[in-house]
Amino acid sequence: MKSKPVLLNDGFNNSHFRSKSKRSDVARGFGDYAFLTLSKHPRIVMAKLKGGFPHVAINVPVGAFNGHAFDLCRYNVAMARRTPSSPTGGFLESETNGRYYEDKSLPIAREDADKSALLKRHYPLGTMIEVLVVDELQLPEQTTVSCYSEDDFKIVKNILEKLNVLWSIRLVSPPGEYNRKLKYVNEIQLFIEKAIDDPIWRGNGLEYDKV
């Protein structure tokens, strides 16, 4: 997992980032993070599956974060309407909401005590908590990939074998409707094949918000 600055340094350009959120991430002070979530079934993933665009879930073990800097945010960084500059003002700081750091427009939990308080309060409620990883995170062999169809399972298996990656794969029921569309599948497979065959290729702007 890599943040925007790391990807840019690796030669990717802005077309590689999600168009609907990349500007707000940076404007709100979160541009240096790679984003993960504790939610098993984020609403945006459910919406994209319903629309027919294939997705998988990459499940990262907790041990991958040992010794690595990360913050937690209980708000949707890209979509939250309240910030300190909005008419209603920003969200209040607290041990369960997090606190404002640097140029952040939303409170985050950085200290262990605040992380524990935020998780204890919001995780049981099903709040979508974002895990904000500084710079990049190496995904270990214990990583697993959850696939929502047998055909997706076969594609992922082929990718991991070609890359000699030892992650586990599992077939699970989709979290709602999955209207898998062949048009999108073909576009994704062409993208993947090109990326594997040409390691210095930096993408063609394929993005699920534009299809």
Rank of each mutant, 00 (worst) to 15 (best):
F53Y: 14
K4H: 11
L171W: 12
V156E: 02
A57T: 14
F30Q: 01
N158P: 02
I192M: 05
G90V: 08
V45E: 03
A113Y: 12
K162E: 11
E187S: 14
H122A: 05
T37D: 12
L118K: 10
S168I: 11
M46V: 15
A64S: 12
T88W: 08
R99H: 14
D114H: 05
F65E: 03
P5Y: 13
A64H: 10
K22H: 10
L92F: 04
I159Q: 04
D209P: 02
V165G: 02
E95W: 00
R121M: 08
Y178S: 13
V62N: 06
S146M: 02
P124M: 13
T37H: 07
R74G: 12
V60K: 09
E150F: 06
K120E: 12
K50M: 02
R180D: 11
Y184D: 13
P107D: 07
F53H: 14
Y101T: 10
L72F: 11
S116E: 14
E93Y: 04
D112L: 15
H68S: 06
I196E: 02
Y208T: 12
D198C: 12
F35A: 01
N186Y: 03
D103S: 14
F191T: 12
G29L: 02
S24V: 12
G29H: 00
L7I: 01
G11H: 00
T127Y: 01
E150C: 09
K40E: 15
K120N: 12
T96G: 00
A78L: 01
K162A: 08
G29Y: 00
D25E: 15
G203F: 00
K210D: 07
R110C: 00
K115I: 04
L119I: 05
F91H: 13
K183T: 13
V185F: 14
F53K: 15
R18G: 07
R23W: 15
F30I: 04
N13F: 04
G98D: 04
K22G: 08
A113V: 14
K2H: 12
T83D: 00
L166W: 04
N59P: 06
L206W: 03
R23D: 15
V134P: 00
N9L: 08
V211E: 12
V56N: 06
G31C: 07
I169C: 07
S105I: 08
A64G: 05
A117W: 04
S3G: 05
N204Y: 01
T83M: 09
P175C: 10
D209C: 03
N179S: 12
S105T: 10
V134L: 07
M1T: 04
V56L: 09
R170M: 08
P174R: 04
A47H: 10
L38S: 07
S168T: 14
I129D: 05
E93H: 03
L139H: 01
E150D: 13
C73V: 06
S85D: 13
K157P: 01
L72P: 06
D32E: 08
G51W: 02
Y101S: 13
K40I: 10
E141M: 09
L132R: 06
E187R: 12
L160I: 08
V6R: 00
H55Q: 11
L163Y: 00
G89S: 09
Q189K: 15
L132F: 05
S21T: 14
V165M: 08
A195C: 03
L160Q: 02
I159H: 00
K104S: 06
V185R: 15
L119C: 03
D25T: 12
K115R: 09
